[in-house]
Design a protein around this nucleic acid. Structure first.
Lengths: 190, 190
DNA sequence: GTCTATAGCATGATAGAC
DNA sequence: GTCTATCATGCTATAGAC
């Protein structure tokens, strides 16, 4: 045979991985199938050997992204305060704001998720609920966990809407300070 | 003449107003010029008598939305605690989450703003900075003002990504409670 | 000022060669 | 399993009739 047995699987993985980055940067619906396929060195027609529709790819992208986010938090063994603060500093960083392709899906594809079908939204709901549950162990109460999640998503989204780096940094740093001050469980309470 | 002198102005206003609602609901880039013009009873070609390009309409939409948001807060004379809390309850409501066409632009068109040109982002930056300044008078410090803004945007965006009404309400109410508890200036401090 | 018609191109998806 | 070719449709934008 012209292609190895695992070639299709490898192609699918490469396609998914590159599509995740490209669509987080530029938006999903505005990015064409041709663009996504060119990125893995193929033409548009070959796409439909891997996914039945563009919509199916969106679902797969979101599922992988949500699972990825969950692992970075919920499945994390080192839940020390120091580690949590380090994670927050990375999330609420100018570097994260300037590189949406390598970052969290929710601030960049959020509205497209909101307009998607129930299957996609259910996946996201399960994901954020499990993240909220994981955060609750480290916050003052369960409300604070939802507050941190909303604040992280909102601050990052907002920081990308402004033009100057000064304001971008001001938004991110202010939100980081507020989370550290109000929401995180204090070390002496442990 | 077949059309009154003010007809063009009226059409432009109607077009802008209906485009604001339609694109906040469905997304700007995915909505066609034909769709927007049909909504005001005209065909696609007539669009270019009012705006030089679709991108120019986007800028006009964002400018009007930002100005509208600013007026609802910054230019608000009644800045009593009661009034502020009422506003927050309305913003963080299930009704707002379910009707993006009548609500705040930032949670629904945020990523499209982030991907737009510097002109659009500058307008948004000036707008949110003036909103943050207005909030600062009612919060414990200026960081808290940024936190409220980020939390509102993030909570609303997140509440629209989940499928069930239960989770939607949980997210919104939790964030409302946290803002009331931590960030607002206490009445006895006035 | 609005219309129809159309250019010119990109899109999502399919069929068949290899 | 991937390719090229193609379909039908959609898009932004323009030209010219009325």
């Amino acid at each position: 045979m012209r292609y190895s047995k695992t070639h299709k699987d490898e192609t699918r993985l490469k396609l998914l991985s590159s599509s995740r980055a490209i669509t987080k940067k530029g938006g999903f619906s505005v990015t064409s199938v041709d663009t996504l396929m060119s990125a893995v060195g193929m033409t548009g027609g070959a796409f439909y050997n891997h996914f039945p529709s563009k919509q199916a790819l969106f679902q797969a992208v979101i599922e992988e992204e949500v699972e990825n986010s969950r692992e970075m938090l919920a499945g994390d063994e080192d839940s020390s305060d120091d580690h949590v603060i380090k994670w927050l500093r990375k999330y609420l960083s100018v570097s994260h704001a300037l590189h949406p392709d390598e970052g969290c899906v929710l601030p960049t594809l959020g509205p497209e998720i909101a307009r998607a079908g129930p299957e996609v939204r259910l996946v996201v709901e399960q994901g954020v609920k499990s993240i909220q549950k994981a955060w609750s162990a480290r916050t003052e109460d369960s409300d604070a966990a939802w507050a941190i999640i909303a604040q992280c998503i909102g601050a990052l989204a907002l920081s990308r809407m402004v033009e100057t780096d000064e304001t971008r940094q001001e938004i991110l740093h202010a939100n980081l300070r507020v989370i550290e001050k109000h929401h995180l469980r204090k070390p002496d309470n442990q």
